[in-house]
Nucleic acid binder design. Structure first.
Lengths: 229, 229
DNA sequence: GTTTAAATCAAACGACCGTTTGAATAGTAG
DNA sequence: CTACTATTCAAACGGTCGTTTGATTTAAAC
């Protein structure tokens, strides 16, 4: 190799494997992506995966560990900021929704993290080996947002808040996966009579839909826009 | 060979393979379920799959063909019935939502079809080999419901109707998969401090959430309950 | 009984998988 | 230079997968 002072030979291969695995996992699924495909596309040796990560599971864990916590930390910080703004009063539902959705949507549009967000959608639909990982690292933030929603929607019984929180996860899942988008459709169906939406989903569209759904059947759901006390 | 009274040796093994495959596909995923596991649980020979269905793909296709069309036919008939009731006037959003959700929720609670509905959720999240199948057989019914929604929500631009239709699919996906339910959780997290909802999701809860979301930002979204003209 | 087709069975095939091994190479410090 | 560690490499291992084969069993028809 050239040993050019700018590059670190160790982290070069390592990061390249992470990026390639992340992209292929997102495009074809984790189980459907073999180590031979990854190392081949990354122009690395098959054994490099086990040298740097110990196993395929180790590689998967690293792919997730890189970006999972920052995403949820972003969500949590936004929620905490809104809670501090409103003091003892509940945070409005639409602000809670935005704190949860915006970090995901923002990363879905950043080139360096959009593959991971699609991968998030995949494992959300089929956790598989990531079940414990997701469950363990996502439990706290889910609890925080559920508490905020319960405080903002005191008329709802707890089970209903939990159900609607899950509905929100379903909407987020759809936005991340975006099935039936032109990008994911076979060419014969995509460009013909099927004219499903192709532009990027606006944050306001998701938040507006979710906020209205969350407030359905409550007094807040019958009001509109700004209101005091 | 047929007309053997109580049991038909041909369809016996065949149907047993279909039922077993359907259940294992729903529980562990299609790719993660081997033919050896299926035939073992069905007390059949490994080669029986290829004798009755030609290949694993043939088995998968048959598992879907059995129940996919009846589900969507149910949805379509409900929508058509509502359209005939309202004549030229648009069908109310909540009735459209109920026509789409109720057939899925009903089957999710029938013992003979609940495994298939969970499988539907799986392939919805990761179409894989079923992409073309789903796309081809689901396209018409999606168009019909999108048209009904556009008619009921004339203030929304077409792309926004399409987006909200996709949001609805996400909520349906969550209801079908029901991640984070006690049934799908590891025991250590399920019964401890995590008290996520465990009862069956009521149809009214889904329809109410979706209808409010669909109407968000429109005049209809600011009104409540029964109203005339 | 004999014939004939449907159905089942044990056994094997080739392909791909994750993993391991041990030698070859690069880079750095003494 | 030598010595040593870090990294890469080709090759193979054992296992599981979907699939195929050819013989065997079943059961209705003649």
């Amino acid at each position: 190799m050239e040993a050019t002072g700018t590059t670190n030979p160790r982290t070069d291969t390592r990061d390249l494997l992470l990026d390639t695995a992340e992209r292929l996992f997102a495009e074809h699924g984790i189980d459907a992506t073999s180590l031979r495909t990854i190392t081949s596309e990354a122009a690395a040796n098959l054994a490099a995966v086990h040298y740097h990560f110990g196993s395929k599971d180790g590689l998967i864990q690293e792919v997730f560990a890189r970006r999972f916590d920052p995403l949820n930390e972003d969500r949590l910080q936004r929620l905490i900021a809104r809670e501090q703004e409103h003091g003892e009063r509940p945070v409005p539902v639409n602000e809670i929704e935005e704190a949860f959705i915006a970090p995901a949507l923002k990363r879905l549009r950043q080139p360096e993290s959009r593959h991971f967000m699609k991968l998030m959608g995949r494992v959300f639909g089929d956790p598989g080996k990531m079940h414990d990982f997701i469950q363990y690292r996502f439990h706290d933030i889910a609890r925080r947002f559920i508490e905020a929603l319960a405080k903002a929607l005191p008329e709802l019984e707890h089970n209903e808040v939990l159900r609607r929180f899950k509905f929100m996860l379903g909407v987020m899942f759809i936005v991340l996966m975006d099935p039936m988008s032109q990008e994911n459709l076979p060419d014969n169906l995509a460009s013909s009579h099927c004219d499903l939406v192709s532009d990027e989903t606006p944050l306001s569209s998701v938040v507006s839909f979710l906020s209205a759904g969350m407030k359905s059947g409550t007094d807040a759901g019958l009001q509109v826009g700004t209101h005091k006390s």
